[in-house]
């Protein structure tokens, strides 16, 4: 049995009157890639953001690597170091070069010395295929390059889990592939990943489990084969036929 990296029990989240997550249960094991799909407004991004406490839950339990995290008493900064996140809009730091973007957190948070952080940052940029862009400012990069830098930046903290919030949704179609390739490589290296995406090809190919969310709930989940080819729920069928 693989180690349990994330366990979510009866998670609830509301924004004012709006109930965005209603009793969500999910567990993610080590090295697994879990892909969350569903229409916009179904709660998948909110679920992801609850996992690293960018949104604070209203009820239920979040267990990260065997430890229940209570946002009131836990040092969330420490938890977030173990749970990296990649955003739809990259959110690179525009006033810092690509290299500085990647080095920033290891130097400031992990107190790594600059030479060492630089060495690691350069190696990470090599890994995402952007060694030649180290001294460039983000504004000079294409969307796909920006997202790959964002992945390198998150990896620089050596997280145990990576969360991807629609990482290719803001990209021109021809740039989607390079980002997915980077993510696929990461999955093959054994990174535990939770990915919100509309890229069904990626889900089919890379995911260990696909989770269909609807109306703040997990409606159906299963191996990509089962869920895509043989969905049990009518809603899942309708959703899949609407996007494929």
């Amino acid at each position: 049995m693989k180690k349990e990296m994330i366990r979510i029990e009866n998670l609830k989240k509301s924004f004012g009157e709006l109930e965005v997550l209603k009793e969500v249960n999910l567990e993610v094991h080590e090295s697994d890639v879990v892909v969350l799909i569903g229409a916009s407004g179904s709660g998948k991004s909110t679920l992801l953001r609850c996992i690293n406490f960018l949104e604070i839950k209203n009820g239920g339990k979040i267990v990260i690597e065997g430890e229940e995290i209570d946002p009131k008493s836990h040092n969330l900064n420490e938890v977030r170091q173990r749970v990296g996140m990649v955003f739809q809009h990259f959110n690179l730091f525009p006033h810092k070069t690509v290299l500085e973007n990647v080095m920033e957190a290891p130097v400031l948070v992990k107190k790594l010395n600059k030479a060492e952080a630089k060495k690691e940052a350069i190696s990470l940029l090599g890994k995402v295929g952007l060694s030649d862009k180290a001294d460039v400012y983000p504004a000079k990069l294409s969307g796909g390059q920006k997202q790959r830098v964002a992945i390198a930046r998150a990896l620089a903290m050596k997280p145990d889990i990576m969360l991807f919030d629609e990482p290719t949704s803001a990209l021109d179609p021809e740039l989607v592939g390079e980002v997915l390739a980077t993510m696929k490589e990461l999955a093959q290296e054994g990174m535990t990943m939770v990915v919100v995406t509309h890229e069904m090809g990626f889900a089919k190919e890379v995911a260990d489990e696909v989770v269909y969310m609807h109306d703040g709930q997990i409606w159906e989940r299963g191996k990509p084969d089962e869920l895509f080819n043989n969905p049990k729920e009518q809603r899942t069928k309708d959703f899949l036929s609407s996007i494929l």
């Binding site: 690293n52 960018l54 900064n77 977030r80 990296g84 955003f87 959110n91 948070v109 964002a150």
Partner: peptide, 9 residues
């Protein structure tokens, strides 16, 4: 959010 997600205070 990006800063916080990297563990920065």
């Amino acid at each position: 959010e990006a800063g916080r997600s990297l563990g920065m205070t």
